[in-house]
Simulated scan of single mutants.
Amino acid sequence: MVWQTSLPLVALFVLSFGSFELVYFSSVLYKFTSGGYLPLTFASVLYFVMYVWNYVQTKRHNFEVEQKVSTEYLNSIGSNLGISRVPGLGLLYTELTHGIPAIFHHFLINLPAIHSVLVFVSVKYLPVNTVPAEERFLLQRVGPKDYKMYRCIARYGYRDMRIGNEEFELFLMENLKNFIRNESWEEGDSSVEEEEIRFLEKSREAGVVYLLGHSGVRASENSSLLKRVIVNYVYDFLRRNCRQGFVDLQIPNKNLLQVGMNYSV
């Protein structure tokens, strides 16, 4: 359990808290015509906002899962990814922890070049108190070795503080080096290990760029009128009035590159 608390104590808390809520709810209903309708109205509005946000975000995630780039396509375009690759380390943020997001294909279409090393970064918050530093990152390789592409899942507990960008980059580099060393040790090829680590260091020295997809969500053409209103207007209003992703991730503007993409749900 998250709080590592016995079930009887949890049940006692739920019963106690639920009793207070029922008393409050009954008093609101009793005084409904004398102003009790205001708390119910506020609660209904908040519930509607949360429902719309969760509904569209779920649809958006399902779209990303369905439209993710296939392994066959990745192998067909080769290690240059169909475009020029320039020195540098690119951190492409995505919510997917498996597969390659559709926004990556959008980057390849709209950019004249892509970085020599790419890392797909997913930030996940786990229902645990804290995640030890040595277990913070889960790393794996994406595609063949000569693609120089990796996946990093950064895991945080609900009491963990997000580290700054410079510290994150250093921590990521150290973990990538250890990942390459462990992989080479398992394969028994140390020469490739040193070469790849040097290439990784040179790429970071050339510059780190954060790649983000600035995605919009629109209802599909065959959607009902209600769904179009919810997705195209209500959700769009909420999204435009929320903090941007790069603000939450504390990404400096000078290191930020965004590409727009519309999702049809």
Results as ranks from 00 to 15, higher is better:
V192G: 12
V86K: 07
V234A: 11
K68V: 02
L212Q: 09
V14P: 03
V229G: 06
R155Q: 14
L257G: 01
S215K: 15
V259S: 11
K254A: 13
S191G: 04
L89F: 12
K177W: 08
F171N: 13
E195A: 10
Y156M: 05
Y30N: 08
I103P: 02
N110W: 06
I163L: 09
E194W: 09
L170C: 13
L7N: 06
Y147D: 01
E183T: 13
E221K: 04
G157I: 03
V208K: 02
L176E: 02
A43H: 07
L91T: 08
M1Q: 05
L200N: 03
R198F: 07
Y210P: 05
T41Q: 02
E64A: 09
S190V: 12
A206E: 04
G245Y: 04
G88W: 14
G245H: 06
A206G: 00
F168P: 01
V131S: 06
R151C: 01
F63M: 11
V131T: 09
G157F: 01
T71W: 12
L81I: 02
H214R: 15
I153D: 12
K124N: 10
E187N: 06
Y150T: 10
H115E: 14
H98V: 08
G88E: 12
V52A: 10
L126D: 09
V49I: 14
K202T: 11
D248Y: 13
P39A: 00
G90W: 11
M173G: 06
S34V: 08
S215F: 15
C242V: 07
P112Q: 06
V28R: 13
T130Q: 15
S27Q: 10
Q250N: 13
N175C: 09
N54P: 00
V2G: 08
L9Q: 11
G260V: 12
V265H: 02
L200A: 02
F168Q: 10
E187T: 08
S70L: 07
F42M: 11
Q4P: 08
E167I: 04
E205K: 14
G260F: 15
L172N: 02
R181D: 06
R141F: 02
M173D: 00
Q250I: 08
T58S: 03
E95Y: 09
V265K: 04
L91N: 11
I100W: 07
Y158L: 02
V247R: 15
L118I: 15
V208T: 15
Y235G: 00
R151A: 03
N182P: 07
R85L: 00
Y30V: 06
S223R: 05
V259R: 15
E66H: 01
Q140F: 11
E169S: 04
V10N: 03
E196T: 15
Y93H: 14
E66N: 12
L238R: 07
R181N: 05
A206M: 00
L38P: 00
F199Y: 15
K227V: 11
F48N: 01
A11I: 14
E64K: 03
I163Y: 13
L91F: 05
K177S: 04
N62R: 06
E195G: 03
E221Q: 05
E134C: 05
K68F: 06
A219N: 01
N178Q: 13
N75G: 09
V86Q: 08
G157W: 04
G78V: 01
R198D: 13
